[in-house]
Computed example of a mutant assay.
Amino acid sequence: MALTPDSITAVLVGLDSRAATFQVRRYVNNFRAEPLLAILPGVALHELWSLMGVAEHALLLVSTFVVIVGLIGMLAVMLAGLNERRREMAILRFVGARPRQISLLLASETLFLAVAGIAMGMALLYLSLYVAQPIVQAHYGIHLAIAPPGTHETLLLSLFLAAAFAVSLIPALRAYRTALADGLVPKI
């Protein structure tokens, strides 16, 4: 078995002097006898990570808009459900529930939906990572780490919960202001 290569496509050169790095790079890039290209790995990796940072920020922006649309949809559903549940709210008030308790009930429903959405999203994420990890490792040689959420992700999830709570206050305040007779008197 001949281990002699047909051609050399890459060479790693280590220099003793950092100052000579740019001189050697310019010499290799300007070499007229053979088309060569000198690449500084640190600079190339920095450019790659800065490009990935732009893509990460774009995806964060898209996901922010998705969350906003989801919160608006949840608000619309809660308000529509509040209209349909006027009679239920009136009966709760009639049996002794205070407006504050009914508001707390509506806010807790919204927070429960938000927590359930987070739990389902996290479960789907970790299931996808678990399934994709060996495939990506085998085909591309990239290891996908499965780790618990970091501080940045925890902060984003906390912001989502705070936004869901803020959205839940709108139907809660509307239910708080609704009179007892409003739900008991049939609408014609």
Rank of each mutant, 00 (worst) to 15 (best):
L157N: 00
R100C: 10
G81Y: 13
L59Q: 13
V136N: 07
L125D: 09
K187Q: 13
A164G: 04
L129V: 11
A107L: 10
G150A: 05
N30E: 13
H57N: 13
R86N: 15
G53V: 00
P41G: 10
S17K: 11
I142V: 11
V185R: 14
P148I: 03
H139P: 00
A119Q: 05
A119M: 08
A123Q: 00
A38E: 04
V77C: 09
I135K: 03
G70N: 03
L105Q: 10
P149M: 03
E153M: 12
L155M: 09
M74L: 14
G96C: 06
T9W: 08
L79P: 07
L161D: 04
Q23S: 09
A175D: 07
S103W: 05
D182K: 01
V136Y: 07
T9A: 09
L71Q: 03
I91Y: 05
T178M: 15
F112L: 12
T64F: 05
L79R: 08
D182G: 00
P149W: 09
V95R: 10
L92E: 04
G53H: 04
W49R: 10
V77M: 12
V167S: 03
S7W: 01
P41F: 10
R177S: 10
E88A: 09
V11S: 01
M78Q: 14
V54P: 02
V66C: 08
G70R: 02
I135V: 15
L159F: 12
P99M: 10
R86K: 15
T21N: 08
S50M: 11
G81F: 15
P41T: 07
Q137I: 06
R98I: 01
L104W: 14
V24A: 12
E47W: 00
A164M: 05
M89S: 03
L157P: 03
R25C: 08
A80I: 04
R177Y: 11
A119R: 02
M78I: 01
L127T: 15
L180Y: 09
A107Y: 11
A147M: 12
G81V: 06
V62H: 02
F165L: 13
L3E: 05
A123M: 06
A163V: 07
V62E: 04
I68Q: 10
